[in-house]
Design a protein around this nucleic acid. Structure first.
Lengths: 118, 118
DNA sequence: TGGTCATTTCAAGGATCGTTGAATAGTTGA
DNA sequence: TCAACTATTCAACGATCCTTGAAATGACCA
């Protein structure tokens, strides 16, 4: 992931509504949710939702697919993962204390250490 | 780390200059660098630098200490680590695929899995 | 005390971002 | 074909962010 892509992804994440979208969509996995369902779940007017969905999609954090009249949005796990990696690796050069602080908070959630790809 | 702190930290990271600052300061560790040194290293006018440094400090990503006439800035590893954790844990609920994408890119940099706190 | 150096604050401007309602495009079913 | 439905695009407005040069603050040294 290059500098400008990472910057776009971070900008996309730096917004309450868009973080809510990630939070809502992540558990749905690849199935995702239709735009209308999302609007209802978050109580948000359609144009505003559409604006943020396309911002996230353009940043590579969301994927969309059309089914009949609906457009289903789902998170792109790689987009988010690579953004995190960019910060950790390219910006912090895997600095031990940063990684430690990152792991520390997630004790018990041991997925990073290897159970992730099951 | 609560919602608004995480949002502030992500906003702070979502800027090229501020990412450059993190990149420059991380390897220096707790010693950090004086504002003047930073300005010289990045070829940046002082007021602009000051603006971004205080943005990062307010977001909890940088710490500062005064030594004689100089102000030394250093990264706060916990601030960055907790921000990453917030995205991974609170927003993505440790979704396996996100974590996998995060780890995958960092093969060889195995610090996250446990060697971080040495 | 007066001068110099390092840094921050201030005010002004231009640029970008986010929200809103209205209008538009595309799909489905009668 | 027509009506209903889903979602996106558009234009406009207000709010926020970033940059810049000038001025101010605070610390050190002669």
């Amino acid at each position: 992931m290059d500098r400008s892509k990472a910057l776009a992804a971070l900008s996309a994440l730096a917004h309450e509504t868009r973080l809510d979208l990630i939070r809502l969509l992540t558990p749905r996995g690849a199935a995702g949710m239709a735009a209308g369902q999302i609007a209802e779940a978050l109580g948000m007017p359609a144009p505003r939702l559409s604006f943020h969905l396309s911002a996230l999609e353009q940043a590579g954090l969301l994927k969309s697919r059309k089914v009949a009249r609906n457009v289903f949005y789902s998170v792109d796990p790689r987009g988010i993962g690579q953004t995190i990696s960019y910060v950790l690796n390219d910006c912090c050069s895997d600095h031990p204390e940063v990684l430690a602080a990152c792991v520390h908070r997630r004790q018990g959630a041991d997925a990073v250490s290897g159970t992730a790809n099951t």
